[in-house]
Design a protein around this nucleic acid. Structure first.
Lengths: 230, 230
DNA sequence: CTTATCAAATTGTTCAACAATCCTTACATT
DNA sequence: AATGTAAGGATTGTTGAACAATTTGATAAG
């Protein structure tokens, strides 16, 4: 410790010249663990353990906690510690209402950026390739990217940020489900929706997207309520 | 200092038993100064000054900064300090795009909560009363409350929070305008929109709201671009 | 079995010190 | 005069230690 720039002997864990703050660096590591399932919802993050492991001070770690708390990935209970957030069914429903609004508005728009359409094609192809090879986690990643691009059709930086946060939160529930049964049903629909967007049939696209999101919500709600009965 | 619970001799600035964290208390004070115009956009917040005035430690103050930074009221530049955010025209446009989406979706909904409609009536009445008495700042407060209630028709906690943040950011621009010329044009429209909502004429309400928001955006964009030419 | 009390563990907050970075001023060069 | 460079002073970034406040779990009393 006291040597930011080289963790353990050339461990290469921290870039030499830290351009962002140390707190953001620590937050990035914890964010990755949460979104990739290394830290499961409900897990407690003990300050002493993490200061030792990440080799940052308690104050810096707390700043990292606060960062992730505002991203709603961690939950901070006063005097009781920090936990990986556990999504309630109400949370999932709330997330999907916001998704319906953001993605719905994006699909409804008349003008579609050709670059975004290309990006959508790529995302669909990546997902299908990953599915063919059985890499279902990668399918999930491509699917999230697909919907992030959909949201970006709104052309609003703020809505992009909100969408990114929504999807990050959704990952918290993803780990409570088998990735194949979660993503397989939506693979063909992504391509179908893309076709409707390319041909400018917006009303049909909007309907398809709505049913899509409703079904995904139902799937996750089921997984979510099951997981909470322990 | 080191006596949280009683600032200067019975200054009554801090509640006796602090239930929330000290950082949130400090953030609340700074938030008030920013939203009420005591701290104007672009102002720099120096750590040393504020730790002395608020009688909190530097670390706690920094946590307060981070809180307000995530609310987008303050801007944190690495190694350069914390500033009250200055909204660019692009920021204002982005805010209004989000408003059109959230409030538009709310108005479009078929089911209207009667309690919310009552709250809307109250907000309109308060605004009109304040206008009659020349209290234009209170008119602004009532107007913001009105739109917050509109957004709440969506019934989503998350969208409520997002709307609250949008409106808080908008206050940053409000202080660059005369409150009367800003709010007076919208007083009759608020009542008109309310009438359309009460009688369930949603499509007309949606159109009215859209023109409403477009004009408000134009007004603020003008004020915003003017203010930046100094 | 319930309630009360106490002790250990953990978090909340502060402080002082030092490192890293930015900004200004002064100086030198062209 | 304009440009580039080099201290230095000021401010922020980070740390570690200390103590206060709170929760938690265990133990003892009713």
């Amino acid at each position: 410790m006291s040597e930011p720039g080289s963790s353990d002997a050339y461990g290469e864990t921290r870039p030499f010249r830290v351009r962002s703050s140390t707190a953001e660096w620590a937050a990035a590591i914890l964010r990755q663990r949460v979104t990739q399932g290394g830290l499961l919802p409900g897990s407690r993050l003990v300050e002493e353990e993490l200061t030792a492991e990440l080799e940052v001070s308690r104050n810096t770690l707390r700043e990292a906690f606060r960062l992730l708390g505002h991203e709603r990935l961690l939950e901070h209970k006063l005097n009781r510690g920090v936990y990986v957030r556990v999504l309630s069914p109400a949370d999932v429903a709330d997330i999907y209402q916001a998704r319906r609004m953001i993605e719905g508005a994006a699909v409804r728009r008349p003008d579609k950026d050709p670059i975004s359409l290309t990006a959508l094609r790529d995302a669909v192809s990546d997902a299908e390739r990953a599915a063919a090879e059985g890499r279902w986690l990668d399918v999930g990643t491509a699917d999230l990217r697909y919907h992030q691009i959909i949201a970006s059709l709104n052309g609003s930086r703020r809505l992009n940020a909100m969408m990114a946060q929504l999807l990050a939160e959704l990952r918290l529930v993803f780990h409570a489900m088998d990735p194949r049964t979660l993503h397989a049903p939506f693979l063909p629909r992504n391509r179908e929706l893309l076709a409707l967007l390319e041909s400018g049939r917006n009303p049909e696209a909007e309907v398809l997207l709505a049913t899509y999101l409703d079904e995904a919500e139902r799937l996750l709600l089921a997984a979510c309520t099951q997981a909470r009965t322990y």
